[in-house]
Design a protein around this nucleic acid. Structure first.
Lengths: 229, 229
DNA sequence: CGCGAGCTTGACGTTGTTCAACTAGAGTGG
DNA sequence: CCACTCTAGTTGAACAACGTCAAGCTCGCG
């Protein structure tokens, strides 16, 4: 973990929602006081149960958002890529995180004090609506997840996870950043069964897999499998 | 379903958060224009996929909030009792409900136009915070639900559901308003297995059950079962 | 009296987890 | 450079957990 204080929004090339809101409000950019932090792979960006003090925005890299379950078994809800909020769920929520986030690779985030955010959305209604939207997408994807995890068989769940990763990468050919165990946690199944299904899909010619390099050969079929589940 | 327009907040004995916020803001109570509706048992108060237009507050009765899954199988997330919001999740969320709510008995609700709510929370910061809190409780209970449904065995899940119903009723002796099927949906298990576990608990002397009349005899043990899952 | 909805129980088959063993590759220290 | 260890991945087999199917039961209501 490496802090870098004194970052200026003007120097940042993201131009995030917060930046936009500040500009629209005619507020002073110097007031934002963003705090950039770089996390190494496996480091915790946020931890279930800890207090929420900042809005966190992913600037670079990727991270997994997961709930810590029983006997050290986790369930990954989704993967965070640049330009997504962490801690927003919790921001709207309670003073404590109800999930954990950890870096999947070297990941840079930007922290903004919650008090500043609150001040901002009271001045700027559009900003609040945009926050709500980001938020709402999370909620409905979680609802979807509950159904998937409880009502689809593991074959359908793995298919869905692969399609999800594909959509994140905007490509049918990409590297799954996750270990087999993590891929399993994304579908709430055991590591062994994850592997079994991957080889099954490969034998059936639906995917091509070499280590972590995945190529979805028959997307239509994979979607079918994911739906029928 | 029976509408009653022209209800006055002054005549309503609930004195809900909205009422309080209006008073605190010094706004005009006549502006609220609440719409009271009475639903019969089994009627849908809100329906997954439909647009969200009002904040809904449960005035009297009870309802189940559930997600509609595959093959007509639902998962009940929680039971709504008076003084809880419906449509708040969605209000903060997206223009569409990501779940359904239906009445478990004759249930009266109060609808307030969302535009009015928005106007209100922009004026009254406390009100917004209170909404957020109600909201946050939902989110963290949903996180909990995901773990429970995926990592506990059915024995633990049914135990948890019974304890949940008990806490709703503030008593160890109460009537489960739900059918066996619905009780199963609360734990995402089949109706048959729900029944099996109920009789199992009864034989073990943990509960006493007569039709829908439930008496939790050994709460400690039930909690233990729910935790070990 | 008969019908249907909700409830109950048993038997059976499927699904997914767990345990155990083995492999391959990466890193480490002698 | 080789032996080691550690981690990630892979596979098989046994077992446990649940869901499903089928049948029967009870109670309220027409």
């Amino acid at each position: 973990m490496k802090f870098s204080k004194g970052v200026k929004c003007l120097d940042c090339n993201l131009k995030c929602d917060i930046y936009k809101a500040v500009i629209e409000c005619g507020a002073d950019l110097d007031e934002v006081k963003p705090l950039h932090v770089i996390y190494k792979k496996h480091e915790n960006i946020s931890k279930q149960g800890r207090p929420v003090s900042h809005a966190i925005y992913v600037v670079d890299g990727s991270a997994k958002l997961y709930i810590e379950g029983l006997n050290n078994r986790n369930i990954i809800l989704y993967i965070l890529k640049p330009q997504s909020y962490i801690g927003l769920l919790s921001f709207f929520e309670s003073p404590f995180y109800s999930y954990s986030v950890s870096a999947l690779e070297e990941t840079q985030i930007c922290m903004i004090d919650l008090d500043f955010i609150k001040k901002l959305y009271l001045q700027n209604h559009d900003f609040l609506i945009r926050l709500n939207k980001a938020f709402g997408k999370s909620v409905s994807s979680i609802m979807n997840k509950i159904i998937t995890l409880n009502q689809k068989n593991i074959r359908g769940r793995v298919a869905e996870s692969l399609l999800y990763l594909s959509s994140l990468n905007n490509s049918e050919k990409f590297s799954i950043f996750l270990t087999r165990k993590e891929l399993g946690e994304l579908s709430a199944i055991s590591e062994e069964n994850t592997v079994r299904l991957l080889t099954e899909f490969r034998r059936e010619g639906i995917i091509d897999l070499n280590g972590k390099e995945l190529h979805i050969l028959d997307k239509k079929l994979l979607q079918k499998i994911s739906e029928v589940g």
